[in-house]
């Protein structure tokens, strides 16, 4: 490469990258508040589906049972306290994850004040479409969890006292959700 070409290349690259960086910074300034807002709306929507009477969802923290989780200021996990329109506390919402067939399944569980399950939502999963993914598409599966107490939360085929029917062809995914929910209940019931 001749010296002139090298300098030409450096100048062109410098101009293009600085212009691009500037342009992108402007786009980011415009879109990032909207993106934040979308995230908040999504959280609200999910929480409202679990607690339709909920009016305020307050973000709170509890110490994490795992060592080394979280950054810096102590290991904390977040959860929501749910208030109705009279500002009475009507329940709590927690997130957890459970290892399914295609990776972690992220689950959001709402509990009423007696630690009975109010509702469940799958936040994210990587289960096989048409098979494991039925934990989302077949609404009756998640509905089964409502109003259960700890000893009920087992797959019928795993435990005679269990009240959960797994989905045919999606046992691993069904079991992952069931175990995840029960373990979450065991963990948070003792905290508060």
């Amino acid at each position: 490469m001749k010296k002139k070409e090298i300098i030409g290349g450096i100048i062109v690259l410098f101009l293009i990258t600085s212009l691009s960086g500037f342009l992108l910074a402007q786009v980011y300034k415009v879109t990032s508040p909207k993106i934040e807002e979308q995230k908040k709306l999504e959280q609200e929507r999910l929480n409202k589906e679990i607690f339709p009477e909920g009016v305020k969802f307050e973000l709170s923290f509890y110490p994490s049972p795992l060592k080394g989780e979280g950054k810096g200021e102590g290991e904390k996990r977040s959860f929501f306290i749910v208030y109705d329109k009279n500002n009475n506390e009507i329940g709590k919402i927690f997130d957890t994850k459970s290892l399914g067939y295609g990776g972690d399944i992220f689950i959001r569980v709402g509990f009423d004040n007696n630690w009975k399950i109010k509702g469940i939502k799958i936040l994210q999963h990587n289960e096989t479409p048409g098979l494991g993914a039925q934990i989302v598409t077949k609404e009756w599966f998640l509905k089964q969890f409502e109003n259960l107490v700890e000893k009920d939360i087992y797959l019928k085929k795993d435990n005679p006292e269990g009240k959960i029917d797994g989905i045919t062809g999606a046992t691993i995914s069904s079991r992952a959700v069931t175990e995840g929910v029960r373990k979450l209940l065991e963990e948070v019931k003792n905290e508060k």
Binding site: I16, T17, S20, L24, V27, T31, I35, Q38
Partner: peptide, 17 residues
């Protein structure tokens, strides 16, 4: 770099709306 600029613009815009 040029392609990445447009991809990023598209990504942010879709993420926002």
């Amino acid at each position: 770099v040029i392609i990445a600029v447009f991809v990023t613009i598209t990504d942010y815009t879709i993420g926002a709306y």
